Simulated scan of single mutants.
Amino acid sequence: MEYILKAGDVVKHFRETKLSGLKPPQEFFDHRQLSRPKDLNEATSRITYNTRNFAGNYMLVIGILAVYALLTNPLLLIALGFLAGGFAAINKFAPDPVQVGNQVITQKSLYTALFVIGIPLLWVASPVSTFFWLVGSSAILILGHASLMEPGIESEYQGVEEV
């Protein structure tokens, strides 16, 4: 039960810090602010401003792409479920050694069996290629959006302090 409360606190903290900065879809997808940057310096300044301005939206894009990657790779989803479920089951149901016939089954032997089955299954599911697909597709979408979106008028007054 203690872990559930901690996980709830983590989700609450994430929602308060990262997702509180979500911009509305009308602002994120405003086609009137799209334009091609004149040069690399302007593109860099747009990327710098927009990655801070739309950080919550970009995190949401990465999350959606991650869910899509898992749903389109069912073997990876099965392998991760097998490993996570195996860890949870071993911790919950087998904390102490169990006598089965003449054999004593320890938690260490159960973890060994889990790894012997789970790691090859995970290797076949190709998590590394899925990770690099996620990094590449996120980078293309985020950098493309950030470089094409003109900063709003508020960016002109970003360094000015109020008196």
Rank of each mutant, 00 (worst) to 15 (best):
Y3I: 08
L60I: 04
G56S: 08
G118V: 09
D30F: 03
P127A: 06
L114F: 01
A55I: 04
P95F: 12
V160D: 09
V135K: 04
T72A: 00
A139E: 05
E150K: 09
A79I: 07
E154P: 11
Y111E: 12
V67Y: 00
A94H: 15
G101D: 05
P74Q: 12
F93W: 13
I105R: 05
I90M: 01
K108F: 14
T106Y: 04
F87V: 15
H13Q: 03
L143N: 00
A43V: 00
A66F: 09
Q103W: 03
L60R: 08
W133E: 05
L71T: 14
N91H: 14
P37T: 02
E156K: 13
V100I: 15
R52P: 07
I153Q: 10
A69G: 13
V61F: 02
A113C: 04
L5R: 05
V104N: 09
G136R: 11
V124C: 04
F93M: 09
I90G: 06
G136P: 10
L143P: 01
I78D: 14
L141G: 07
A69D: 13
P127S: 07
P151K: 00
A88H: 15
I78T: 15
V10T: 12
K6P: 12
N102L: 08
G144K: 06
V67F: 03
Y157H: 14
E156P: 01
S45A: 10
P120S: 07
G8N: 03
L134Q: 02
G86H: 14
A139D: 06
T72Y: 00
Q33W: 08
G21H: 05
F54T: 06
I62H: 07
G63V: 05
S126F: 03
Q103C: 08
G21T: 07
I90S: 02
V10R: 02
A146K: 02
L5F: 11
L83V: 13
Q26G: 08
V100A: 04
V61S: 05
P151T: 00
K38S: 01
G152V: 03
